Each structure stands twice: as structure tokens, then as C-alpha cells.
Amino acid sequence: METKPTEISSSKMFEGYNKRYKHFSPTLGCSMTFHVYFPPSPSPSHKFPVLYWLSGLTCSDENFIIKSGAQRAASAEGVALIAPDTSPRGLNVEGEADSWDFGVGAGFYLNAMQEKWKNWRMYDYVVKELPKFLSENFPQLDTSKASISGHSMGGHGALTIYLKNVDKYKSVSAFAPIVNPMNCPWGQKAFTNYLGNEKAAWEEYDATHLISKFHNVSATILIDQSIDVLFFLPPIQECFQFY
């Protein structure tokens, strides 16, 4: 088991480096991959604030890193990009790959409550395990200075994670997010299978419901509903304005 990160690939971009790693996740019970973009460092002791990027349905940790061009802004602003995968993989749970919007590639950034899907605990992985793992293994990252962002299903994850952990993140930015999954087919399918039929459990992962519990958070939330945001640098650059 990879208790330490194993580097899979490395490529130079905008004077920094894209690096892909794998490690064993005790939270998910399987090996996971994630990307880190390290900006150019002004000194050996410099520590970078981080921006977590959560991708959408069918995606992995590679989509945003390959397609977005966000490394240009991250390099200029001195922010490290962290892109985890979207679900556990390789567990061979019956039905995990039967549809594109549930199971593999579709973790919905929640902690499943149904026994069959007990390994689907992406909420705990993103909020607890991954930041701790990064802090312990990459001294150049300052995970105490973090923001979170995402697209579609990842926008849903970013919003709900932020609203339940406002002390952990400087800001949240969501692009074309699923903001009310309780009332759309994707969310209803995922919530029923992962969480069961109890609507109280669903409300804990619905940004529209969660926002009603909080006040004075609008200044640190950016939502852009453009469908082409992954290829449009200016909205991506807005993610870095809160550091």
C-alpha cells in the first residue's frame, strides 16, 4: 500500500510543474491519484497557499489539469492547484460502472450511508484525509491557506464542503454547479443510492438548503453558470482573488 505519495508523472508548465501522484487512501479503501501544480518558487522555504479543484461527472484528476489552462493564473498568483479524483476506483463493487452518472467517476463528494457503497466517502477524503496527507508530505504547501472550487458535480461538492467548513477555506468558486441536487435527476439518483430515502440526509449535501442556514458568506462565494468555463481563463483567475 502506498502510504507515501508515489510520483507518476511530471511536466513543466508556466515555470512550475504539474505532478501526478498515487497513494493508498484508508478513507476510501483503495489507491487514489491526484494532481498538484507547483508554481515557480521564490525561495526554497516558500510555502504556497492551495486551491482545491473538484471535477464533474465522468471526470478524473486529469481533466482540469489538461484542459483548463489554470496553471497560467496559478503561476502568476503563486497558488498551488490540487486536483483529486472524483470517486474511488478499482473496488469492483457490483454496478459501479453501469452508468455514467453514478458510481465510478461520480462520487458526489458525500459520505455514503448505504452499506454497498460504504467506500464512497469523498467528503471525508477531500475535507480531512487529503489535506492532512498533503501537509505531511509536501512541506512547500500551506494547507491552512486554502480555497476550494469545482465544476458541475464538483461545483456542488465545492459549495457544500465550503458551507459546512467555512473555517477551513478562504473562498469557494463554483462553475455551472449542481446547486439543488435534491430536485434534479442526477442528485436524486445519487442521493437515493448513496444515502437512502431519508431526505434529512440529502439536505446535508444540498447547497440550496445549506445556504439558508448561513449569513454573511456571499462576499466569499463566486458562481459562474457559463458552460464553457473550463476553457475561459478570466473566470478561473477569479478563484485566486481572496488570498
Results as ranks from 00 to 15, higher is better:
G95F: 02
T143Y: 00
S135Y: 04
E94S: 15
I161M: 14
V127E: 08
L110Y: 08
P131L: 06
K132D: 13
L159Y: 05
A73W: 04
N137I: 06
G154L: 00
A80P: 04
P88L: 07
D101M: 06
W117I: 01
F102Q: 10
G154N: 00
V93N: 09
L141F: 10
V93D: 11
K118G: 04
G78C: 01
V126R: 03
T160W: 07
A73G: 15
S144R: 14
D124K: 01
N111C: 07
S147G: 13
G90K: 10
S135I: 00
E115H: 11
A83Q: 12
S99Y: 10
M113V: 11
G95Q: 04
L134E: 03
D142C: 07
S144A: 13
V127N: 10
K128L: 09
F108V: 11
M153W: 03
Y109S: 04
A158R: 10
I148Q: 03
L91I: 09
Q71V: 03
D124M: 04
V104Q: 11
K132V: 12
A73I: 10
D98V: 03
S87C: 08
T160V: 15
S75K: 09
S135V: 00
E96N: 10
L130W: 10
A146V: 02
V79E: 07
V126N: 10
Q114V: 14
F133W: 05
Y123D: 14
V127S: 02
Y123E: 15
S75T: 08
G154E: 01
G157N: 08
N137G: 08
N137Y: 04
L134R: 00
A73S: 14
N137F: 08
E129L: 01
G157P: 09
D98C: 05
G90T: 10
K145M: 13
Y109W: 14
S87T: 07
G154R: 08
G90H: 09
A146Y: 06
N92F: 15
D101T: 02
E129S: 07
A97M: 12
I82E: 06
Y162D: 05
Y109M: 06
T160H: 11
P84W: 09
E96S: 13
G95L: 02
A80F: 02
G150N: 01
F102R: 12
I161R: 01
S144P: 02
F108N: 12
S152I: 05
G103M: 09
G107E: 11
F138P: 06
W100E: 14
F108C: 12
S135H: 12
A76N: 12
G107M: 09
M122S: 05
A70E: 06
K145E: 11
Q71D: 14
M122V: 04
D142P: 05
S152H: 08
R121G: 02
S87R: 04
M113N: 11
Y109T: 02
A76H: 09
S99P: 00
K118L: 07
I82W: 01
G78W: 04
D142E: 13
A106Q: 02
S135G: 12
K145V: 11
E96M: 13
L91A: 06
F133I: 09
W120K: 05
G105Q: 05
D124V: 00
L130R: 11
D85P: 00
A146M: 05
A80T: 07
I82C: 05
N92M: 13
L130V: 10
Q114M: 13
R72Q: 13
A146S: 15
S144E: 14
K116M: 07
L134M: 08
V126M: 08
L141M: 11
I148P: 04
A80E: 05
V126P: 07
K128E: 15
P139W: 00
